[in-house]
Computed example of a mutant assay.
Amino acid sequence: MIKYFLKKKFRKDEYGWFGNYSSWQEAATISDGYCKASILEKTKNALLKIKNGEAIYERDSVLFDKKEHPFPLLSCLLRTAWEKGTPLNILDFGGSLGSTYFQIKDFLPADVCVTWCIVEQNHYVECGRDLFENSTLKFFYSIEECLAATKIDLIILSGVIQFLPDPHHFLHRLTSYGFKTILFDRTPFIRDNKDRLTVQKVWPSVYEASYPAWFFHEASFIQHFEHDYCIKGDFKTYVEGESILQINNEPIGYSKGICLVKK
């Protein structure tokens, strides 16, 4: 029993979010990064099982026997479709190989969503186009490439902003596209007066990896949108265990979603 609890504590201390780094480069030098081929391979294999009806639900490359529905996200999509009066063209930035699409597509009939576009890393786009693309699901290398092909009504950014080297530059640029609705989900914030850069060490049950990860000061994050957008609602993440996040094993972080609508 003692060995069990020691092992449990060791594992708890070993994986999660750690540090307070002064630059992305500093954090990156002690991280594997998000471009490892093994991450794509595990994600691809999991989502092929979803696509082929051999499994029910995938999140972060892990298969589950019961699907979790992100109802706040769905509410935002359905509200935007109702206001528009015609089916949505949705952009899922950093959407992997379609994780959210496959998770909620049963709630998105043709009169709600006509196109689900994913912007991802190059190797994800190549894999997505080869194995997953269909009349609804499309893959692009950049937001600009996507917009050249389709007029987007709503952009989803779920669990992705924290992995960008310069997220505030991206958030400033995001407002210039003029999307009607911007929807953040699974975005980490910190109970502090400034952002904090950590290294996330992923549990081996997911995959072997570590990468820099930001926690945001919420007021500074929202400030990018105050001029052009209003907050239609915010909500706790649907993923169990993410409403409170520990940094250096202290519960000072939290994950939430925010729905922004253009004024």
Rank of each mutant, 00 (worst) to 15 (best):
S61H: 06
Q121R: 12
P165V: 04
R59Y: 11
L47Q: 04
T237H: 05
S142R: 11
I252S: 07
K236L: 08
E58L: 02
Y15C: 08
D130A: 15
L97V: 10
T237N: 08
D111Y: 03
R196M: 15
V202R: 12
K232L: 07
A37T: 09
R196P: 00
E226L: 10
V62W: 02
I2Y: 07
D92R: 02
K3N: 13
S255K: 05
V160L: 08
Y207P: 00
S158F: 02
K236M: 06
S23T: 15
L97C: 10
I244N: 07
E126N: 09
G128K: 00
E242D: 13
L131W: 06
D106F: 00
K138D: 03
R173F: 04
Y207D: 13
P167N: 09
T175P: 03
T86F: 07
D111A: 03
G94M: 03
V261T: 14
V62Q: 13
G159H: 06
K42S: 12
E226H: 09
Q103W: 00
W116A: 05
V112E: 03
S142E: 11
A148D: 14
K256I: 06
Y141L: 13
D106V: 02
L88H: 01
F184W: 07
L171H: 04
P212H: 05
I155L: 12
K3G: 04
T115D: 04
V114M: 11
Y141A: 09
A149C: 14
K44Y: 11
D130Y: 03
W17K: 00
S255Q: 15
T150Q: 10
K201H: 11
T86P: 00
K194P: 02
D111M: 01
I2R: 14
S38D: 12
D111F: 07
E242Y: 10
T29M: 12
L260R: 01
S176N: 13
V199L: 10
K151R: 13
D65V: 02
Q200W: 05
H224P: 07
I258D: 00
V261I: 11
D166I: 08
A27D: 08
I231Q: 11
A148C: 10
E250V: 14
R79E: 14
F140Q: 04
A148Q: 14
H227L: 12
T181P: 03
L40C: 05
E208N: 12
A28R: 10
R11D: 06
V112D: 02
E68P: 00
K256P: 01
Y21V: 04
G95C: 07
I152T: 01
N248F: 06
Y4W: 08
G85R: 09
N45C: 03
N134A: 06
E58H: 01
T181S: 15
T80F: 01
I50F: 06
N122D: 14
L73A: 04
R59P: 02
G16L: 07
I50Q: 03
A148I: 02
F170V: 08
G33L: 09
Y4M: 10
I30Y: 08
E126R: 09
D32K: 12
E26V: 08
Y15S: 07
D185N: 15
G178D: 13
H227E: 15
V239Y: 06
G128A: 05
S176F: 05
C230M: 08
H224V: 09
E54H: 10
K3F: 09
L147K: 14
P212L: 04
S99R: 08
P188C: 08
C113A: 14
A46H: 01
A209C: 15
T136K: 15
L154E: 08
G159S: 15
R59H: 12
V125W: 04
